[in-house]
Simulated scan of single mutants.
Amino acid sequence: MSTERNKRVAILGVPLNFGGSMAGVELGPAALRLARLQQRIRGLGYEVLDLGDLRIEHPNYVAAADDRAKYLREISAVCEEVAAEVRSILRAGQFPIILGGDHSIAAGSVAGVASFFHEQDKPLGLIWLDAHADMNTPETTPTGNVHGMPLAALFGYGARELTHVAGYAPKIDPRYCAHVGARDVDPGERELIRRLGVRFFTMREIDERGMSACMDEALRIVSQAPAGYHVTLDVDVLDPNDAPGSGTVVRGGLTYREAHLAMEKIAEAGGMQALEVVEINTVLDVNNKTAELGVELILSALGKTIL
């Protein structure tokens, strides 16, 4: 991203909670603001505009247990709105920071960044930090929860309501995507990952090679994209001891320092065009610990260093 956009940040909250099965993530944006997100970004020398939260229209019905993509129509409508807002932020020369909500919103946020650069014929890269692959489709999902589908949708797989947010598909070429931190992958996702050749840095590889080497390679992959890259971070990528406030915790995640190292390397590399933090569940959090860490990681991605 350009230095000018780097210094002008726009914060957008997307308090959507019906892509998953547990209440609490809709308060994630508020929890991050409570941790003084805006003031602390300003402390790094940025001009900050908080656009507030999108108004989310909640479904007035309960999805059937066997629905293969629960609340798809409503989630698609939110994602279209998110994509439009993110495009507007970029057109204003600002850097978007998107606060979730559950991870289904990424089908909209990434679409917004990708479509902005699509108009300039520049493909976008993507770093996806997550314990889960998020590459299910309505055919492979074990739950029907759409927050497990956005990455597949960005590659053009799954329900058209998700794949064609912003009017076209796919948004991301798998060659320009790096997934970091996976440790819980469904069988159908595994098959699609292999078919597309998406580069996954699993926790096993991170354990063996170290976070620094894995992030260096991930950044080489996404930096090949002419437009730069979007970064989306699901807090369940972190170890539950450091980030208890997630409804989808999986033991053995990134440590506090590994997560900061990843964000610091992203800041040093340059090229980040948007940043997103999702899935902070305030009901499960302890003294806003996860939101505090979320803010710290955003600051590291924006260039905060120890010295």
Rank of each mutant, 00 (worst) to 15 (best):
N17K: 08
H103Y: 12
D134V: 07
N17L: 08
L302T: 04
G303R: 06
W128K: 05
P29Q: 02
L261V: 11
L233N: 03
N241A: 14
A31C: 13
V286M: 11
T290F: 10
D242T: 02
A92N: 08
F155G: 12
S88L: 07
D242F: 14
R257S: 14
I266H: 00
E80H: 05
Y256I: 07
Y256L: 15
P240G: 01
F116Y: 15
W128P: 01
E26N: 09
P142M: 03
N136E: 01
V78G: 13
A153V: 10
G13E: 06
A31Q: 05
D50S: 11
T248A: 15
V113A: 15
G253L: 06
A133N: 07
E4L: 11
A77P: 00
V249M: 03
A131N: 08
Y176V: 08
L126V: 07
I193Y: 01
R194P: 02
H118I: 00
L124Y: 00
T290W: 07
G303C: 12
A111C: 08
N17W: 08
V14Q: 06
G43L: 03
L297R: 02
S76C: 14
E85T: 05
N145S: 13
Y157V: 09
R40F: 04
A259F: 00
A77D: 11
C79R: 02
T143L: 05
A178I: 03
V249E: 02
I172F: 01
G197H: 07
N136M: 11
S21R: 07
E74F: 13
P150A: 05
Q120Y: 05
I306F: 13
V165M: 04
L27N: 14
T202N: 08
A64I: 00
L90G: 10
V295G: 00
G270P: 04
L37T: 09
H147I: 11
F117T: 07
G181A: 08
V198G: 06
P240M: 00
D102E: 06
Y46R: 05
L154Y: 00
D66S: 12
R33L: 03
G108T: 12
D184G: 07
G228I: 09
D207A: 06
E296C: 08
F18T: 04
A84S: 15
E139Q: 14
F155K: 12
A114T: 06
G228M: 02
C214F: 12
F95N: 04
S223C: 10
E47L: 10
Q273S: 13
T140M: 04
V48Y: 09
N17M: 09
L196V: 05
T3S: 04
H118V: 03
V110L: 12
R195Y: 06
E268Q: 13
H103E: 12
L297A: 05
G144L: 09
I172N: 06
G144V: 11
V82W: 03
I280Y: 07
A213W: 04
D134A: 13
G158I: 03
M22I: 14
A111P: 06
A23I: 14
M272K: 04
S223K: 10
S115F: 02
D67S: 14
M203V: 11
M1W: 00
V62K: 15
I89L: 08
